[in-house]
Computed example of a mutant assay.
Amino acid sequence: MNQNVAIRSVRQEDFPAWKLLWDGYNAFYGRSGPTALPADITPMTWSRFFDAYEPVHALVAESEGQLLGLAHFLYHRSTTQLGPSCYLQDLFTLDAARGKGIGRALIEEVCRRAREAGSPRVYWQTHETNATAMQLYDRVAEKSGFVVYRKLL
């Protein structure tokens, strides 16, 4: 990774640049235009990053004043371990920043923070068609063997 890239917590003044990344992330997963998230989701998500009561956190990758990527993660209880689990919910980098170690650096920083929080594991999921991301994930983690199911309500 470029030595000029810093991984840090998001700050209030990052909102415009974070929003561009967030919109890119959502568009990547088909959530844009008529399938966009409801309008109240983005401001609520943003506010959670700054609410000490919320277990939701945001990191950004920054170089020369430009945000290149984001990672959102949260902690939750588990019935099978004492420490909290850490779920890496969102990971995204700009197209121009891909293949430069930024995604890996964001994952590593989430893992570092999870260890500090007493979490014995970090886990995440991606869409089965996201072959580029899976190449990275296969290098930095192991597959759990579990299949994810969901039912929209």
Rank of each mutant, 00 (worst) to 15 (best):
Y29V: 10
W124A: 02
P16M: 07
A97H: 01
P84R: 10
L68F: 02
A71I: 01
T79A: 13
S63C: 14
C86E: 03
E109Q: 13
E142S: 13
P55L: 06
F28C: 08
Y149R: 09
L106D: 00
S85G: 07
D14F: 04
T93P: 08
A105I: 06
H76T: 10
P34S: 08
A39K: 05
D138N: 14
T45A: 12
V56I: 14
R115N: 06
H72M: 11
W22V: 00
A52P: 14
A39H: 04
Q135K: 11
Y53P: 10
A117L: 05
L21R: 00
I102D: 04
Q12I: 09
I41T: 05
L74S: 14
H72I: 11
Y29R: 06
R98Y: 06
A36N: 07
D23G: 00
A52C: 07
D95A: 10
L94I: 09
F92D: 03
D40Q: 14
P34I: 11
R112F: 10
Q125C: 10
D23E: 10
E13D: 15
L106E: 02
Q135P: 01
R31G: 00
A117E: 11
T45F: 06
R112W: 07
A96V: 14
V147A: 12
H76Q: 13
S85L: 13
L74R: 11
G24C: 07
R150F: 14
T79G: 05
L152A: 11
L20I: 15
V56A: 07
T45N: 06
E109F: 02
L152N: 13
D40V: 08
Q12L: 14
V147E: 13
G99C: 05
A36M: 06
E109C: 04
D40A: 12
Q135N: 12
V110F: 02
W46E: 03
T129Y: 12
A39S: 08
T132C: 04
K151G: 05
